[in-house]
Simulated scan of single mutants.
Amino acid sequence: MAGLPIWYELMTADLAAAGAFYRATLGWEVPPQGEAMPGGVQYAQIGRADGTSAGGVLTLSRAMQDCGARTRWIPYFHVEDVDASVAAAEGLAAKVQMPPVSMDGVGRMAMLADPQGAPFYLMAPTPPAGQPEAKSEAFDPFKAGHCRWNELNTTDGAGALAFYEALLGWTAGMKMPMGAAGDYQFLEHAGIAIGAINPVQEGPSHWLPIFGVANIEAARAAATETGGKVTVDLQEIPGGEFALNVDDPGGAALGFVGPKGASQ
Results as ranks from 00 to 15, higher is better:
163 F>T: 05
167 L>R: 04
180 A>R: 12
172 A>T: 10
155 T>Q: 10
180 A>H: 07
168 L>D: 01
174 M>Y: 14
154 T>A: 01
160 A>T: 02
200 V>N: 08
152 L>P: 01
157 G>F: 01
182 G>T: 05
157 G>T: 00
171 T>E: 12
165 E>R: 14
179 G>Q: 00
190 A>Y: 13
181 A>L: 11
155 T>V: 12
153 N>F: 12
154 T>Y: 00
177 P>D: 06
162 A>L: 09
180 A>Y: 02
164 Y>K: 03
196 A>T: 07
199 P>F: 00
171 T>F: 07
164 Y>H: 06
186 F>C: 09
185 Q>C: 08
155 T>F: 05
193 A>P: 05
192 I>L: 09
164 Y>L: 02
191 G>C: 08
182 G>W: 03
195 G>F: 10
164 Y>D: 01
180 A>W: 03
179 G>T: 03
160 A>K: 00
192 I>T: 14
191 G>M: 12
192 I>P: 05
160 A>Y: 03
183 D>W: 04
196 A>L: 13
188 E>D: 09
179 G>S: 05
156 D>R: 07
191 G>L: 09
200 V>K: 10
161 L>C: 10
192 I>K: 15
164 Y>N: 10
161 L>V: 09
189 H>Q: 07
191 G>F: 12
194 I>H: 04
178 M>L: 14
167 L>T: 01
173 G>S: 10
162 A>T: 08
193 A>E: 07
186 F>W: 11
156 D>S: 15
176 M>Y: 12
171 T>A: 06
161 L>S: 09
182 G>I: 01
194 I>C: 10
172 A>E: 14
173 G>V: 08
153 N>W: 13
193 A>F: 04
196 A>N: 10
193 A>L: 13
153 N>I: 07
163 F>E: 01
166 A>T: 06
192 I>F: 11
181 A>Q: 15
166 A>C: 12
165 E>N: 12
195 G>R: 08
179 G>L: 02
